[in-house]
Design a protein around this nucleic acid. Structure first.
Lengths: 150, 150
DNA sequence: GGGTCAAAGGTCAGTAATGGTCAAGAGCCC
DNA sequence: GGGCTCTTGACCATTACTGACCTTTGACCC
């Protein structure tokens, strides 16, 4: 397991307790024997709003970084996602949406896997870039709608 | 035995253990004294979904390629369907397959609904008839595969 | 209050470490 | 010879890590 994964794991464990964790950047970096900015890297790559996290911080003496898991209602969240998709959707963003929804227990693993399969680049490989991303957006919206009706 | 066969053999042996193997592309290439892309060739020619394998990978530091054998059982039936779909699939036939699978309790209602949503004409409305039916076939196969590994 | 300084955290660009794609050529079998 | 499968290499994309430099905040002093 690489450094980033280890740091992410530790943060995740801290979040288990009450969905929120407050940490000291320098201290954490020292624990892992890495440069402080590594912490920023991990946070910005794995604890984004897209993935269901909120990050706050303060500099200066007694500074901190606080990461919290955000909680929203199921129908609202689905609608929010649908409404924010737009006409076109790339695979990475789609995957992030799914991870987020799964993490928040809006959809179960099984559904997430299916939705991933249906919207992967692999599944849409015949299409040109532009058409693929437009079609992915439509398929994904249809899927979310199907979920919200279930 | 040629290189590709040797590499495939090694992967197959690794899969024996627990139906899953994780490898380092560069490292493996070095072991066989070939270019890294040779590994991709072997994987894409012999470890395809059609042949019952699932491949995942990640780039970057600590990257990997993971190959897993799709579990059989009800999987066998799914593979049978997958292998009989062909290159092209119309909405009616697709729907029939789904009803059939649901009837046989191979998939649950929830999954069937999702799969229907992903393969409906509505979801693929942007595409020309020909492309739509080819893409539907691919999506459906990917979905069945996802189900079979669940 | 205002100045100063030390203690946080933030940004960004560069480098390293992987894997992916594609097209061209080499071999092999009919 | 034609058409496969196999190999290779150049070039690309993604993820991880580091370090130099920047900004913000709080404490202390006058």
């Amino acid at each position: 397991m690489n450094l980033s994964a280890a740091i992410a794991k530790m943060i995740l464990e801290g979040l288990e307790i009450d969905g929120q964790i407050e940490l000291q950047r320098n201290e954490l970096a020292q624990q892992f024997g890495c440069v402080p900015s590594q912490i920023n890297y991990v946070i910005s790559s794995r604890f984004t709003p897209e993935q269901g996290y909120m990050v706050e911080s303060r500099r200066g003496g007694g500074g901190f970084i606080r990461i919290s898991r955000v909680k929203l209602g199921k129908g609202a969240l689905l609608m929010h996602v649908i409404n924010n998709i737009g006409q076109s959707l790339d695979e990475k963003t789609c995957r992030a949406h799914l991870l987020n929804l799964k993490h928040q227990s809006i959809i179960d693993k099984n559904s997430a896997d299916l939705m991933l399969a249906a919207t992967s680049d692999k599944a849409l490989k015949l299409l040109s870039d532009h058409t693929r991303e437009e079609t992915r957006a439509i398929i994904f919206k249809n899927l979310l709608l199907a979920v919200s009706k279930a």
